[in-house]
């Protein structure tokens, strides 16, 4: 799978997991931060994305670590992490 389609998939994954209304993948910039500025996600979203990653890709991440912050830095960072570590 090319990085481009995985990036698209990751954006859809974020939108569905968090049930974001009226947000299309095109609204999520590849490199914009998901939290704070940019998409503006919050700490509860971070937990829900963590649970979603485990369900969907069999990936376990520890909450509130520096690594987690890097994984969720942007849609591209999350796609890179999934590509490198996915088990399903």
């Amino acid at each position: 799978m090319t990085t481009g389609t995985l990036l698209q998939e990751v954006k859809a994954f974020i939108i569905e997991t968090l049930d974001l209304e009226d947000v299309a993948p095109a609204d999520i910039d590849d490199d914009a931060p998901l939290f704070g500025e940019g998409l503006g996600l919050d700490s509860i979203d971070s937990l829900e994305l963590g649970v979603g990653l485990q369900k969907r890709y069999g990936l376990k991440i520890s909450t509130e670590s520096e690594e987690t912050r890097q994984i969720f830095a942007s849609a591209r960072a999350l796609a890179d992490f999934i590509a490198a570590h996915r088990t399903q």
């Binding site: 974001l20 209304e21 009226d22 609204d27 939290f35 503006g40 700490s43």
Partner: peptide, 26 residues
């Protein structure tokens, strides 16, 4: 457009309102 405008409003509230309390549905 609606989606970006929603986010614009969320961003405008960010200094006053906790992130978890920013409205999600507009």
């Amino acid at each position: 457009g609606k989606a970006r405008f929603d986010r614009f409003l969320r961003a405008a509230l960010r200094d006053q309102i906790e992130a978890v309390a920013l409205p999600r549905r507009w």
